[in-house]
Design a protein around this nucleic acid. Structure first.
Length: 604
DNA sequence: TCGTACAAGCTAGATGGTCT
DNA sequence: AGACCATCTAGCTTGTACGA
């Protein structure tokens, strides 16, 4: 970035043009309140208000949260009612509750009775079960808290904002089994964890699994699989995703995806799905696209980009329109919508949309009977109020009309421009020139796909054969000279030696006899081609390409046969006219001229 | 006086849509 | 396919406030 000159503003006046109004000041002090990283605005104001109060009576969210956490962890009168709030007088229980609360309550000491009152008068009224309070307060036994109670609950002290740590809640240290030696034996641990799992609350189970999963990933699989790469919500998300797939009667794509990347081929050389080429890029980009809240900074991977370039260059805008979909086109903000019932405008929208999708040569909306299109356009208008406004709402993938996410046609065009990528032959030509300059005396063989250069195979513009290569037996040479003779005959019909009607007749009869011989050849050829086509069709494993080639042969033979028959008829007509010795020389000359051209095309 | 924190403004760059 | 415009973000600079 270019560094701009620094703005000189000395002394500061505080009256910069467009400057926002002064920030809030607290009462008479006139000084700014500084907000700490974990402090909410209300806490701040309360803190100031409470500064001069001698006794703190209001419970902070952290204190209530700690109380709920302790009860959820250690209160369980019996197996059937572990989810019920404690209420009775139990000095030992409430005393420990107070200790737990005071972990988060530096400077103030809550008593056991205060805790009991809190549970009876507030928690019990607001939350029917301990588990619901646990959810609402976002109790986190291993990581960050996510609360749904009121405003955001400040993070617990051991959590660095934005990062989930693997630190445990300090309340886990309150366990009565903490110092018992036998619980440290693997057998006891496995037994306690597996047999006690079902007596945990759903939140405790989830958090335990996430915690163990993260620990296992880092310690046993790969130290780089930390919380930044494997977010803590991964496990619940995977479970939800599989549940959705199951409900929709779909395959377990999560499992298949894991197999694609998790199973290594050839002794760990590469995963089943290669990571550096398509379709990895397409899949990766689409998954990231639909899972993002904002796709503004999302860039397609290189392999996907270059594939898009190839497809766009070969198939153009039609491909881009069908592949990508309308994207953010026609997405409008309601206040900018000019609501209209103008049917001509509606028709224009439909035809333009069709044009953009199918190209300019499409006439999908019948102009003679535009009623169906008009009706559907009016429906669209009245139902959705969606009219093209020219502006877009970008960034939110949920508002996009995307078929397959990818770089837009415009972006692909830019990529093409930036990278000498084109549908022309400039690159190939320059490469050939470069090679020729490097080896001026070398001999070159170029192999090209025949279907791409059909016309060229038949003949060049200068009537020079550019077809099959002579294999050295001279057969092709003799065929070629016969071909040239035939070619020479056609334009000269009736032009030899004074162009008498006898000469014309003679030439025409020659051509006629050639045509009848060729008719036989073509009929046989047509039959052979049809036979070949049927054979190929019957073969179970015949490729589309082979079928296409055979069908093409059959088609060409039948075309030539048709031409042969019609030319024979024309020639016989002319001969019969000449025979009848009627003098329509002018008509015959014009007919001959057009016949010559037709014959030439046929012969070629 | 200096360092830090934060808000606001600016710019380059990327991207998508429309028009021609 | 190019020109043009709108939108958005990241990264940077600048101004201001505040505490040590």
């Amino acid at each position: 970035m270019a560094e701009g000159p620094k703005r000189v503003h000395d002394p500061p006046t505080g009256q910069t043009p467009g400057k926002k109004p002064e920030k809030r000041r607290s009462g008479a002090s006139g000084r700014f309140l500084r907000k700490s990283l974990f402090q909410s605005d209300t806490d701040l104001e309360q803190g100031v208000e409470q500064k001069n109060q001698k006794v703190q009576t209001m419970w902070k969210d952290e204190e209530v949260s700690a109380l709920v956490e302790y009860i959820a962890l250690y209160y369980s009168p019996d197996e059937n009612s572990f989810n019920v709030w404690p209420a009775g007088k139990n000095d030992e229980l409430w005393g420990k509750c107070a200790d737990a609360v005071n972990c988060y309550n530096i400077g103030n000491k809550r008593s056991g009775d205060a805790c009991r009152n809190m549970v009876r008068r507030y928690l019990k009224e607001k939350f029917p079960t301990i588990a619901s309070a646990e959810e609402a307060y976002g109790i986190s036994y291993f990581g960050e808290k996510v609360s749904t109670v009121g405003q955001s609950v400040p993070s617990t002290p051991h959590v660095v904002s934005g990062h989930t740590t693997s630190a445990r809640s300090p309340l886990l240290g309150f366990s009565p089994l903490r110092d018992a030696d036998f619980t440290k034996l693997p057998g006891c641990i496995l037994d306690i964890v597996s047999s006690g799992f079902s007596s945990l609350t759903p939140r405790q189970r989830e958090q335990l699994l996430i915690h163990l999963f993260q620990k296992w990933m880092v310690e046993d699989i790969n130290p780089r699989l930390d919380a930044t790469f494997v977010p803590p919500q991964l496990l619940p998300l995977i479970a939800n995703a599989m549940s959705v797939l199951r409900a929709g009667n779909k395959d377990n794509l999560i499992y298949y995806a894991a197999r694609c990347f998790g199973e290594q081929l050839h002794g760990g050389a590469s995963p089943r799905m290669p990571l550096d080429r398509m379709p990895f890029g397409l899949i990766s980009h689409n998954l990231k696209f639909f899972s993002s809240d904002n796709v503004y900074t999302l860039q397609a991977p290189d392999d996907y980009k270059s594939w898009c370039q190839s497809m766009y260059t070969l198939f153009g805008n039609k491909w881009a329109s069908m592949h990508l979909g309308p994207m953010w086109s026609y997405e409008v903000e309601s206040e900018h919508v000019p609501v209209t019932n103008d049917s001509s405008l509606s028709l224009d929208i439909i035809s333009q949309a069709l044009q953009e999708t199918f190209g300019s040569d499409t006439n999908m909306v019948s102009m003679e009977n535009p009623l169906p299109a008009l009706e559907s356009a009016q429906d669209l208008n009245t139902n959705d109020d969606v009219v093209k406004s020219g502006r877009t709402i970008k960034g939110d993938p949920l508002k996009a009309k995307i078929n397959i996410a990818g770089p837009s046609a415009r972006t692909i065009q830019r990529m093409n421009k930036a990278s000498d990528f084109s549908k022309g032959t400039e690159i190939q030509i320059s490469a050939l020139k470069f090679l020729h300059e490097a080896y001026p005396n070398g001999r070159w063989w170029l192999k090209a796909d025949g279907t791409d250069i059909q016309e060229g195979l038949r003949e060049s513009m200068r009537n020079e054969w550019s077809g099959d290569v002579d294999l050295g037996d001279g057969k092709l040479g003799s065929k070629y000279s016969k071909y040239l003779e035939y070619l020479k005959l056609v334009p000269n019909i009736g032009l030899n030696d004074g162009a008498s009607s006898n000469n014309v007749k003679e030439d025409l009869k020659k051509v006629c006899s050639k045509l009848s011989i060729e008719n036989e050849f073509l009929t046989n050829g047509h039959a052979d081609a049809k036979k070949d086509y049927k054979n190929v069709q019957d073969m179970a494993k015949s490729t589309e390409k082979a079928l296409f080639a055979c069908a093409w042969n059959v088609e060409e033979f039948s075309k030539l046969l048709e031409k042969n028959v019609s030319l024979s008829q024309s020639l016989n007509n002319i001969i019969s006219i000449l025979d009848s010795e009627n003098n329509y020389s002018v008509n015959i000359a014009t007919t001959l001229t057009s016949l010559r051209q037709e014959l030439l095309d046929y012969v070629k």
